[in-house]
Structures are given as structure tokens and as C-alpha cells.
Write a protein that binds this DNA or RNA. Structure first.
Lengths: 338, 338
DNA sequence: ATGAAAGCGCTAACAC
DNA sequence: GTGTTAGCGCTTTCAT
């Protein structure tokens, strides 16, 4: 008989064996009690429960997942938790998944594009599936990653049917906004563009190119900007230089940053300048003035992506990508051309 | 010879055995290659790597954690990811933990107080430790939970030395704000209080009671409000009714909501009314007008809490609670009494 | 340098 | 109804 191997583990919580021993039953019985299997004699079950209580036992999810081959948990990868747009989607995923009895674990990549794939693989290897929200990685990297993390769903990126997809139609949305400004009489419009690498920024650009073709008389000037408050704040000089009477900001955050600057500069909105955002984050209704923007059903996007993912976990067929078309929400930040 | 047990697992990813078989080596060798153990012959290692590549193998973190008894991952429980205050703390935890080679998994409880303890236990049972950010549960529930999820750290709750703690000194902070308003000549001040159950709200209240004692001539009226934009927006009627010339809002969000309403009502800030926030969330510098508030080093709180937790994971002694004192940041939303 | 096998904590098939 | 035991995928000791 070989002597017992010794492998000291750093932490030793209470395990099912401790309960079994204390209650004087087998591990199987403890497991049955824990999982509510009804074929356990009431007096035995009671003894087990007492032991569980006494030792404060909670089963290791790690061991459970390994044994079951399933964790009923999904991972969500977010580039930046501080962006309200992302956590609205996250919220939608969360609610929908919870309704189906799934837990959600979130990993924030802190906009570290390099570590994105590794994070995705890591979280996938602890969960049953992952959703990638607006991943920053390049398309080849994404296409390389997807097969390694199936089942997987992706928000706001195209994947050529290599994953479930839900996305927002930014191209159409930005045109709706532009049309709104044109209807108000504006002829010179500035577009504060987002990050160079952003797919959704390209979509907007694509939309504006289409818009120009149908409106040759309207001038739309692209101004490099960014996606943060500070970017919008700093964009004022460029906007002033452009002679525009209206601004299409990349998103609400940028618009809000610009609004702050305009207030400081004494520029009246919308009397002197009209400003629009995109996404309709919760704060946009409370800014001074309230922001005209495109409202996107972000929680709906999250719910849709979960539905697709859930199908895939269940082995169902992949559906077609779900496209959300945003709706114009007119508030007080836009008005007639001065 | 017993027949092989069959237990069909829902999903079957590539495992270490597949690699071992394909490369014609033992699982131990594959494990060594995966973990960079140097005692593997180069040609063998090469064969293993080829197999790994061919099958796109990534090790199950679940199995790994179970075997190692450690995952180098911590869980962070947040009541509401959409609150910038929380994800700033989260950000601090994340950066600090990452620097020590730990991954961070986030669970959002969606303000579901009832499910909080269960979520904490669940995430703890997949990770090496947890941090609870401003848990909503009652004190008895919290004290009952803490021993079951050690090592654990808590932000903005007291635990009587049952956990590592980092917290913000709201009582002192709100007094600093009140003093700032008094220095500007205000004598009637409204305090828009936060949620009934909020510990930090009680702290503020405590601070204001102390303030009243040292300033018997100043009237500070408490107005029930809440913690969201909408709460601040709706508070206007009560504020007007109170005759106050300055408002201490529960936090920045409430202040921002109120600012939005004041703009709509044509009330000038700070000429007609001064407004302060608390937390200094990123947007507060860009509002119209920029918000006077208490700046809290939220990422610092996160980093501190990680440091304590890291010590505990390493088996170190518990340190004293870390207290962060916020600093007054004066911007344009406060001015002399009208 | 490599492999065989034990063991991490749990579940479930099977035997009694 | 309850216990025994194999096995989930991995790491690591021990033997070779």
C-alpha cells in the first residue's frame, strides 16, 4: 500500500467530506441533501443540515463545475466599465441570463487591447459561454479567437457567421441625426469623430458619406476628436474654426463634454450652436440643456445577444445577426440655424 | 474489469489528454510544457506545442483551480455597476490586483439586496477572495456572511474587525462642504438625503448634526431625496419650499439631476442657488456649471482594499481599517448667498 | 527527462 | 434509501 501523497493546499475550506464525516453519512448523501434530491430520509437529511450549518459549509463551485461539466455561468467581457453604454448592454445581458437561471461574471479589460483575447479565453475557461461587448482587437485576431471560445456572442462587431451577433445600426442613426439638423436649416455641420480604430465610428462615417450623396448642398466636416468627456471639451476650438452651426458628436459623452465647454465659453445652445449625441445614456436627459440624441435600446441589445447565446449553449442553430435601429430623441440641445 | 462509466457531459472541449495522445506523451509532460517547466527535452516540447496549436487547446481554469487549490483570481461584488462611484473603486482594485498578478471577476447584484449574500458566496467559491463594495445587506446579515467568505475585504461598511476595511469619511466631508457654504454667507441650507438604508447617508447625517452644534445660527434642513438623477431632478419643489439658498446634495448624481432641473426652471446657479455634490465623479467637472464637490480618491480606496486583502490571502495579519478623507473641490456651482 | 498515479471537491451511475 | 466508486481536467509527487 502506497503511503498517502501529501500536497498542502494554500487554503482549506470546509468540504463535503467534512460534512459527511460529521453527520456520519457518505458524501453522496450530503450531495443529495445539498441538491434537494427527495429520496433522503428526513432524519438523515436533518442531521446533514445540522452539520452543514455547524460548519458553515458552502460547496466549491469550482469542483461542482468540473464534475458537472457545466457552471450555469457566463462571462461578459467589457472594454471599459466606466462607459455607460457598455454597462447598459451588460445590464440587459444580466437580466435576461438571470431569468434563465444563469449567473454573469464580468471582466473589464481596461481598454487593454493586447490582453483582450487572453481575458476572453480565461473567463471562458471558467464559464459556459462568453459575450464580447465591442471588442477592440483587430478583425484577424477576433476571427482567430472566436473558435476557441465557443459558444460566444459578440456585440457591435461583425464576425462573418463565426459567432452570434447583435449590433446597432450606427450608419442609419447618424443619418437620422444629420437629417434632423438639416430640417432645422443647418448647412454646415461638424462631425466629431471617435477613436480611429472604432468599428462603430467607421459605421457613422459610412453613414455620413451616404448622407452627403443625397444632400450635396450640405457641408459635413469631420473633426478628429475621441470618445471621452475631455475630448468633447477640447473639441471646441476645432468646432469654432469650422464655422459649423451644428455638431454631431461621436456619442453622448463627447457631446456632454462639449456642452460643458460651451457653457464656460458663453456659447448658447441651441441658439448659437446645436449639439447632438448618440446612445442616450441616462444622464443625457438631465444635462443643461437636455441632449438631442439617438436612443438605442441597449438593454434590448443585451437581451437579444443572450437569447442567441442561450440557443447556442443549448446546441441550437445560429440565428441571423440582430440589428437594432436607434430612434431619434429630440431634446433642447438642437434648434434652428442661428 | 468493470465497464467504463458513461457520463455524458454537455460540452466537450479539447483536454490535456487529447494533447497528450496526439503528441504521444503523458499528460504530465503536456502540463510541464504548458507551465514552462524547463526540464522537458526540446524536441518533445516542440511536438507538444504543435499538438496544442493544432487542436487550439487552452487549459480549463476550473480544473486548474481545483487541482492547485488556488486561482489567482478575486471576485468583486458591486451593488450597481452603473454608479460611477463604484466602478472607480473597482478600477482601483483591478489595477492593484493586476499588478500582483491577480485577475478580477465582477458580479453586479443589480441592487438586489436579497441575493447579495448568495452572490458573494457563489463568486467566493470560484475565486481566492472577495471584496464587497458598499454591500446593501443589514449588519447582522453582513456579520453572518463575512466568516463564510474569508478572505474578504469590505468598502464603506464597518465590520468590527471581521474583515479588511477601507472607507470614506463622509461625516467630515459633508461638514467641509457645509463650512464652505457658510463661508460664502449661506444661512439656510438644504441637505438632500440619500437612501434610508445607506450607511454613508447616516454618516453624512451624523456629520451635519455635529455641524449644527458648532453653528447654532445656521439652519440645515434635511429633505428626503434619494441617490439617482431623477431624485435630484424631482427635489426642486422641496428645495424651493425650504427657502434654502444652498443645497448639499447626497452625491454628484443627485446634484447633477438637480442642476438639470434648475436650468429648465430658469434658476441661475450659483447666483440664485448654490449646489454641491459628493464623490467628484468624472462628469462633474464638465457640467454646466461645473460642480463644487468633495473629491474622493476612489481608485485609491480600491488599491488600499486590495493591499489589505492581498496581505490576508498571504496569511498576514489584519490591518486597521483605512480611512480616506475627501478633499473640497470648489468649482462654479457655489457662490455667495444671493 | 518522462510517466504512472494520486488527489483536488464534487456528482451520478450502479450496487445493495 | 444509502454507500461505493469512477470520473470531471488538471498538477505534482514519486519512481524510473
Amino acid at each position: 500500500m502506497a503511503t498517502k501523497r501529501t500536497r498542502r493546499h494554500p487554503v482549506r475550506q470546509t468540504t463535503i467530506s467534512d460534512i459527511a464525516e460529521l453527520a456520519g453519512v457518505s458524501k453522496a448523501t450530503v450531495s443529495r441533501v445539498m441538491n434537494g434530491v427527495p429520496t433522503v430520509a428526513e432524519d438523515i437529511a436533518e442531521r446533514v443540515r445540522a452539520a452543514i450549518d455547524e460548519l458553515g459549509y458552502t460547496p466549491s463551485q469550482t469542483a461542482r463545475s468540473l464534475s458537472l461539466g457545466v457552471s450555469r455561468t457566463i462571462g461578459v467581457l467589457v472594454p471599459d466599465l466606466s462607459n455607460p453604454m457598455f454597462h447598459q448592454v451588460l445590464h440587459g445581458v444580466h437580466r435576461a441570463a438571470a431569468a434563465d437561471g444563469y449567473r454573469v461574471l464580468v471582466a473589464d479589460t481596461l481598454e487593454d487591447e493586447a490582453g483582450e483575447a487572453a481575458s476572453a479565453i480565461d473567463i471562458r475557461n471558467r464559464t459556459d459561454a462568453v459575450v464580447l461587448i465591442a471588442p477592440r482587437m483587430t478583425r484577424p485576431e477576433l476571427l482567430d479567437l472566436l473558435p476557441r471560445v465557443q459558444p460566444v456572442a459578440v456585440v457591435n462587431r461583425t464576425t462573418g457567421r463565426n459567432a452570434a451577433v447583435a449590433q446597432v445600426d450606427y450608419a442609419t442613426g447618424i443619418q437620422t441625426l444629420a437629417q434632423h439638423l438639416v430640417d432645422l436649416g443647418h448647412e454646415r455641420i461638424a462631425f466629431l469623430s471617435g477613436p480611429e480604430a472604432s468599428r462603430s465610428n467607421h459605421e457613422r462615417l459610412r453613414g455620413l458619406i451616404a448622407f452627403r450623396e443625397t444632400h450635396p448642398d450640405i457641408e459635413i466636416r469631420e473633426l478628429a476628436c475621441g470618445s471621452g468627456f475631455e475630448d468633447g471639451y477640447r473639441a471646441w476650438d476645432a468646432v469654432r474654426g469650422s464655422g459649423a452651426t451644428a455638431v454631431l458628436a461621436f456619442n453622448d459623452i463627447v457631446a456632454l463634454g462639449l456642452l460643458g465647454r460651451l457653457d464656460e465659453e458663453g456659447v448658447r445652445v441651441p441658439d448659437d450652436l446645436s449639439v447632438t449625441g448618440f446612445d442616450d445614456i441616462p444622464f443625457s436627459r438631465y444635462s443643461a440643456p437636455p441632449l438631442t440624441t439617438m436612443t438605442v435600446d441597449l438593454p434590448g441589445v443585451g437581451a437579444a445577444v443572450w437569447r442567441e447565446l442561450h440557443d447556442e449553449i443549448g446546441g441550437g442553430l445560429r440565428r441571423d445577426p440582430v440589428v437594432f435601429t436607434p430612434a431619434l430623441t429630440v431634446r433642447a440641445s438642437t434648434g434652428p440655424r442661428p
